[in-house]
Design a protein around this nucleic acid. Structure first.
Length: 298
DNA sequence: CTAGTCAGTGCAACACCTTT
DNA sequence: AAAGGTGTTGCACTGACTAG
C-alpha cells in the first residue's frame, strides 16, 4: 500500500467527495476514482458508499481511515526524526487553539520556544473548542489548546489548568462595586458572549439551563477581542478567564469580578494531543515547553 | 541504448441523481 | 424538463523500471 494511496484515501474521507478531493490534490477525479477502486479491489470489499452528492465511508472505510491517519502522522514523525539525525534541528509544529489563550499565553510560549529552537517553524490556527478537538482528531493539528473540553475517547489531555470565568467590565460599572457576582446578577445588565461551539459559551449555556436562566446577549460574537472591546468600552459585562484579560486588568482598563456559580469556577484550559500518537521531536519539545510556560503566566 | 512493460494520470464522454 | 453536480469508463500519454 503506497503512501500516495493513503494520502489520496485520507483526502477523500476528509472531503466526502472524490471530485473535491481531486481538486485539493491537484489531480483528475478519474485518477482518484481509480486509486480508490484499486484499494477496494486490494481489500476485497467496498470502502465507500457512492451517492449522487459524494461518497460516504463504509464501516471498512472508517476502519481504514483510522489506520491511514495514524500512518500519515507516523510518516511525519519519521521525517522529523530523520531531520534531527541530520542535525538540522528542523521541524514544524501545528497548533490549534481557542483565541482566549493566545494573546497572553501561547504567543509568549511560542516566542520563548523559537528563541531556543530557531529551526522549528510553528503554525497557529484560532478557532472554537469543538473545532480544536476536531483538528487534533483529524490530524490537522499536532497540539490543541481548548477551553473546558469534554472527555473524548481518542483525545489525550496532557495538561489541564484551572481557569475560572470572571465577569469582566470597566471599573466604574455599577456591578463592579460587588466583590462577587452570580451569573444571574450579571444578566440584569447588557452582556456579550461567544457564539455556540465556544467552550465559554457551552459553560454559560449549561449554567443557564441548571439555574433556569435566560441568556439574551446584547452581543454574540466569534471574536474574543470583540468581547474584550465590549467590556472595555463600558457597554456591559462579558465572561472571560483572567488570563485572557490579564493586560487590560493590569492597565486598569477593566476589572474581573469573581463569579459564584460553581460550574463557571471549574472552567479549565486544556492542552491536548491525539491519543496513542508518537509525537515528532519538535512537537514533543514544544509540548514540554508549553507545560512549563503556561502555568507561570497566570 | 533500445524496446517492452507497468503504474499513474488526464481528457472526453457517459450515466445517474438532485435541484431548480 | 433542463441544468448542474457526481462518480465511472475508455483511450491515450508519460515516466520509471527492466531485460536484452
Amino acid at each position: 500500500m503506497s503512501l500516495t494511496a493513503l494520502r489520496y484515501f485520507n483526502e477523500v474521507i476528509r472531503a466526502g467527495s472524490i471530485r473535491e478531493a481531486a481538486d485539493r490534490l491537484h489531480i483528475a477525479p478519474s485518477a482518484l476514482s481509480r486509486q480508490m477502486r484499486n484499494l477496494e479491489v486490494t481489500f476485497g470489499l467496498p470502502l465507500f458508499e457512492r451517492h449522487a452528492r459524494g461518497v460516504v465511508p463504509t464501516s471498512a472505510g472508517e476502519l481504514y481511515a483510522r489506520y491511514a491517519r495514524a500512518a500519515l502522522l507516523d510518516e511525519e514523525r519519521i521525517n522529523s526524526e530523520i531531520d534531527d539525525l541530520k542535525g538540522l534541528r528542523r521541524g514544524h509544529v501545528r497548533i490549534c487553539s481557542v483565541e482566549g489563550v493566545v494573546a497572553n499565553g501561547l504567543t509568549h510560549a511560542i516566542a520563548t520556544f523559537r528563541k531556543r529552537f530557531q529551526g522549528v517553524s510553528i503554525s497557529l490556527e484560532i478557532t472554537g473548542t469543538e473545532s480544536v478537538i476536531t483538528a487534533v482528531r483529524d490530524g490537522d493539528a499536532d497540539i490543541g489548546v481548548a477551553f473546558t473540553s469534554s472527555p473524548e475517547a481518542d483525545i489525550h489531555r496532557t495538561m489541564r489548568l484551572k481557569d475560572p470565568l470572571f465577569a469582566i467590565m470597566i471599573a466604574g460599572y455599577p456591578a463592579a462595586r460587588q466583590r462577587r457576582l452570580s451569573l444571574s446578577d450579571t444578566l440584569q445588565y447588557p452582556v456579550a458572549v461567544p457564539r455556540k461551539h465556544f467552550g465559554i459559551r457551552t459553560l454559560l449555556d449549561t449554567r443557564c439551563r441548571t439555574a433556569q436562566l435566560t441568556l439574551n446577549p446584547t452581543l454574540e460574537t466569534n471574536s474574543i477581542e470583540a468581547l474584550r472591546g465590549f467590556a472595555r468600552s463600558g457597554c456591559g459585562i462579558t465572561y472571560l478567564p483572567r488570563l485572557t484579560v490579564k493586560r487590560e486588568i493590569e492597565a486598569g482598563q477593566v476589572v474581573a469580578v469573581p463569579l459564584t456559580d460553581r460550574e463557571l469556577q471549574q472552567a479549565t484550559v486544556d492542552v491536548c494531543v491525539l491519543k496513542g500518537r508518537t509525537l515528532p521531536m519538535a512537537t514533543a519539545g514544544f509540548l514540554n515547553h508549553l507545560h512549563a510556560t503556561l502555568p507561570t503566566l497566570r
